[in-house]
């Protein structure tokens, strides 16, 4: 039981603002309008966000566009710098070192070795004009691998797992369908067997049967590797299917969190209630 008692990922008091703030909005959240200062136009994209993900757990994040979900994911993957906050991974220095405060070099290492990211838009996650194989190799080279044979073998193995046929593995992802691109992204995210996967709207824009393929794949991977997953989606049925716990965000803040079925059946916050009532 000790294993799941200790969080794999911990984020504490994370803040991200775009702009410097002014005397009107600094430390006065009541003056903000929808996460934005009406006087200096500073945007408070994430405010005081704290969350934990435990071993083998899937945590869902829901919220409307502009609620700060992607800002949060980008900071966790070091795509953007936080304004302040603390970030710990159990697999990194025993979870005792705030990675936000570490060097850029260390952050890069964490990003390559301990995290896997799948973006909504494959253009963000893939080099579109390099072959599917090379995309995976890129991630492995970043992790220090220099052995071509082992990289090709690993690439083949991963692409096999995400059902990319051998004949297409040397093709560039720009010539793939949306579903295939998403699967290559997933394979790339898994290249270094990271303990934590960050999935940002991975099924948005895919048709139903392809969506089911991708979700099935994620479940298979999660079961085989016991990954911890942070999953952003505005599709409540995806959240219902995958997430053990769910966090609801609005205007850059966490407004509610609970067991997924509790969030869906007994929502407490007015916004969560509206969200659930909107479910088709």
């Amino acid at each position: 039981m000790t294993q799941w008692e200790k969080p794999v990922l911990t984020l504490k008091n994370f803040n991200k603002t775009f702009g410097n703030g002014c005397s009107f909005c600094k430390d006065k959240p009541e003056n903000l309008k929808g996460g934005c200062c009406p006087k200096c136009r500073t945007i408070y994209a994430c405010r005081d966000v704290s969350l934990c993900v435990y071993c083998g757990e899937v945590v869902g994040i829901v919220g409307e566009s502009g609620s700060g979900k992607s800002t949060l994911m980008q900071a966790l993957y070091f795509d953007s710098e936080p304004t302040d906050g603390e970030y710990y991974l159990d697999a990194y220095k025993n979870g005792e070192r705030n990675i936000f405060a570490d060097s850029r070099r260390q952050q890069k290492w964490v990003r390559n070795m301990l995290l896997g990211m799948v973006y909504q838009n494959p253009v963000m996650g893939l080099k579109m004009h390099f072959s599917a194989q090379s995309n995976i190799a890129e991630k492995m080279i970043a992790a220090g691998n220099r052995d071509v044979h082992s990289m090709v073998a690993r690439g083949n193995d991963l692409l096999e797992r995400v059902s990319i046929p051998p004949a297409r593995r040397k093709d560039n992802p720009c010539n793939f369908s949306g579903g295939m691109q998403q699967r290559v992204q997933i394979a790339k995210a898994l290249a270094n067997e990271p303990p934590v996967l960050l999935l940002d709207e991975i099924t948005t824009g895919l048709d139903l049967s392809v969506q089911a393929d991708v979700l099935e794949l994620i479940q298979k991977i999660q079961r085989a590797n016991r990954n911890s997953i942070l999953l952003v989606s505005h599709d409540l049925s995806v959240i219902r299917m995958l997430a053990d716990r769910t966090v609801v965000m609005r205007n850059g803040q966490i407004i509610e969190e609970g067991l997924t079925d509790q969030i869906l059946e007994d929502p407490q916050h007015p916004y969560t209630q509206q969200l659930v009532y909107s479910l088709l």
């Binding site: 609970g258 067991l259 079925d261 509790q262 059946e265 007994d266 407490q268």
Partner: peptide, 9 residues
């Protein structure tokens, strides 16, 4: 029942 199962709070 749902309260026992924590589907309801």
């Amino acid at each position: 029942l749902k309260s026992i199962y924590r589907t309801y709070l």
